[in-house]
Amino acid sequence: MPDFSFEKVNYSVRPNKAVERRLLLQLLAALDKRADLDLATYRYMGLGSIWFVDFALIHRALGIEDMLSFEAASSREKRVNFNIPFDCVKVKLGTYSYNFPELTWDKRQLIWLDYDGVLNAEMFTDLAQTVSEVPSKSIMLVSVNADPIQLRDAGNDVAAQEIKLRDTVGTANLPSNAAGRIGRNLFPGLVGEIWNNAFVNAVAERPGFTYRPLVNIAYADGVPMVTCGGMILSDEDADAFATVPMEDFAYLAPTSPLVLSVPHLTAREKLHFDQLVPVRGEATLKTVKKKLKFELKDSEIESYIRHYLHYPLYGEYQF
């Protein structure tokens, strides 16, 4: 029997992913309140896998009741349905693309296509077709693997890798300096820019609409991932939206991605670290580092200081 990624990875124990989810929820809740979106009336579409973590969170936090999950692993139909967390979650078998022609666009959408795979051309078709249909004030996010190893099957030659990437993402979306950014450090930034271009280019094909970026986040719990997305607005709504104060969330959508790199901590480590935060007054990363009783990378310390409130604590328990 083939393996699916959810059979290899337990999606609920990835601290950076968990931080990302909570940041996104914070952002959505703020948008809901300040821009008067009434998110509870939206339809949520996602790729729930058998864990449905995003579905459960979004239902609880935003009150959305119209929820649709797409599941490509048709041979796991029973397992997927068995794990539905709430009665309002419906599952459609087959990929998002496969189901696209059947989808309806009668209400605003909150869409998070959290692909667990590498970049492929279908994702860009999904994006372009979706943004050409959704009503104004819909929100769309995409998460994708940003490990440059995915270009390796084109060989080790950077030019060939760039060609493969261009074939996958399309010329319009590929920055002209892409070849110099195919490496583990720079690739997530490149992927973020590719997705941002994809959103802007796709919305530009829809007269009277604009795209407002909201999220550009990179993180790695083992595999580097990038999440990118924003809101699709009619020109009229865009003018109104421009007056909504969202500056405090601008840090989630920088030009090069916000990097989440909280460390994998044991329970004991987390509790110790918590006693050193928040960092106020004279204290700096350096002073925290001095007081820490174990070694961590500066980037990990910095990320933890910034996101400790969203850091999940995992435990083992038995029924």
């Binding site: 261009r166 010329t171 319009a172 979306n173 920055p175 002209s176 271009n197 802007v200 280019n201 530009a204």
Partner: peptide, 15 residues
């Protein structure tokens, strides 16, 4: 002005 603003325009022009 809309085309000049769209990244796809520049990327395709350069290629």
């Amino acid at each position: 002005s809309g085309e000049f603003r769209t990244p796809g325009f520049m990327n395709q022009l350069i290629l």
